[in-house]
Amino acid sequence: MNHLSAAVDWLLDAQTWTGPGQLGARATEHLGYTAVAVLIAAVIALPAGLAIGHTGRGRAAAVLSSGAVRALPTLGLLTLAALAAGVGLVAPLIALVVLAVPSILAGAYAGVESVDRATVDAARAQGMNAWQVLWRVEVPLGLPIVIGGLRLAVLQVTATATLAAYVGAGGLGRPLFLGLRTYDYPMMLGASLVVILLAILLDACFEVVQRLLSYAPGLARTGRLREAR
């Protein structure tokens, strides 16, 4: 427990947080990586996932790819990208996007598929075109699951962004690895606690959004997409 109190002391020290390269800046970096990676992944995966869910085409490939990525070790992906793209920001970002895409893709197509076929059928029978069926029926009704996919992606990316420091990027992994290399246990423990807190906070935000959505009448019950991180 000595380490813990030392870690708390370290965390409570104003010096730990302020200034460039300190914890405040690192946390911002960490959130920045997460946001950029998830955003890029969403731009790729949301349209693709919605299209797969709507048309039913390409589903097998999507299922296969998300299964394969689940088995892919994140550290391996990260180091491979770093060796290929060089030390810096690009490599981790590529790895993070690759990790985030399958979750978002799966959420998008599972969300669309979760909508009762009879409802979709009725919407078509009323004279909605494909685009209207997608945006007025399938997307709003499948939204909780689509957001579940984003939630999972954010979770995975936040966790893996910690490893990004191993290949030379910033983020909260920086003080963690620094503490690891210099046997500064309070520092690495403190940094770990901050990462855990950040991850739980982000996840809690999604929890709140999904809870709010579950009060919206008529929406599918919030399904938390469960997959490997």
Binding site: D116, A118, T119, D121, G127, V137, P140, L141, G218
Partner: peptide
């Protein structure tokens, strides 16, 4: 065509949201 033909189905097919 569908917009000018009424269609009623079992379980109403209403939009739940």
């Amino acid at each position: 065509l569908r917009r000018r033909i009424g269609y009623v189905m079992q379980n109403s097919g209403l939009l739940p949201h």
